Computed example of a mutant assay.
Amino acid sequence: MAIVLGPNRYGKAETRLVRVVRDGDTHALADLNVSVSLAGDLTATHVTGDNSAVLPTDTMKNTVYAFAREHGVGEPEAFGLLLARHFVKTVGHVDTATVTIESYGWRRLGPHSFQRTGDLTRTATVTVHPGGVQVVSGISDLVLLNTTASEFHGFIKDRYTTLAETSDRILATAVNARWRHLGDEADWADSFDGVRDALVSAFVNTYSHSLQQTLLSMGTVVLSQRPEVAEVRLALPNKHHYLVDLAPFGLDNPGQVFQAGDRPYGLIEGTVSRDDAPPATADWYL
């Protein structure tokens, strides 16, 4: 039996970067979490411990900070492209670089004062490899809720089913979405804002008979409004809200008092694509 080395990569994960732009008395703030991963001809370091083809991960961290100073940060997709192209160009045994960025929001309170918003996390994953360049943008923990316009009935029932059918329920989720771009050039800020708005609009305006139906509607609205997007992947946890039984207290409860469930929760996942979109050139995940 032969034992062989399979696919492998290495890098520096979660380099925390805060970049301040000082424009007179008015400052701007970028807050990022940057992860770098490199792959290529790295057999020697695994087999013999020969590190002559290995760029230290500490150097990757330093490059992130130096590029933030020399080039600025800008949009996360643009910063990721800059870094990934640099590593592929300058590290001889590396042919693939993936840069993943989480961007955290801050709301301006004054010329140099900010408040962390915490309402969502913007993401970007850029891969530069022999087959080309792939840019995937995303959003995490976008919490949305409809107090009505949602039903769930007609499902399979067996001896273990206790869930009652309902024609009026709260529908809530924390959207985790990733969308693959058709190219590597775009107005990244406008694209992100447009996709986010499309996701929210579809959730608000879809009368839902299932969260799966809402997922398809959200992906369809994104693709119909954003021509730069090839496909959308969505993971929607069903954040259950349970009607509280107030009968022991002599009270009715006409859909007004609920217990917000924590776990377990339903998890609905799916991909919505253009049928004529070119295939992905690198792996990408939710």
Rank of each mutant, 00 (worst) to 15 (best):
T98V: 14
V99E: 04
T100G: 15
E102R: 15
Y104F: 15
Y104C: 04
G105R: 05
G105T: 03
W106I: 02
R107E: 14
R107M: 13
R108Q: 13
R108G: 11
R108C: 09
G110L: 10
G110I: 12
P111Q: 09
P111S: 10
H112T: 11
H112M: 01
S113M: 06
Q115R: 14
Q115P: 03
D119F: 06
D119M: 03
T121R: 03
T121P: 03
T123Q: 07
A124D: 06
A124M: 03
V128S: 10
H129N: 15
P130Q: 09
G131C: 07
G131T: 10
V133Q: 12
V133R: 12
V135L: 08
V136L: 01
S137A: 09
I139W: 00
I139Q: 01
D141C: 05
D141S: 12
L142F: 04
V143A: 12
L144G: 06
L144Q: 08
L145R: 14
L145M: 14
N146C: 10
N146L: 08
T147C: 06
T148S: 10
T148D: 11
A149S: 12
S150N: 05
E151A: 08
F152C: 02
H153R: 09
H153N: 05
F155S: 06
K157V: 15
D158L: 08
Y160E: 11
A164M: 07
T166D: 04
T166R: 04
R169D: 02
R169V: 08
A172W: 07
T173S: 13
A174F: 09
N176S: 06
N176L: 02
A177D: 00
W179E: 02
R180N: 05
H181M: 15
G183P: 02
D184C: 11
W188T: 07
S191Y: 09
G194P: 03
V195S: 07
V195P: 01
V195L: 04
R196T: 05
A198Y: 00
F203A: 04
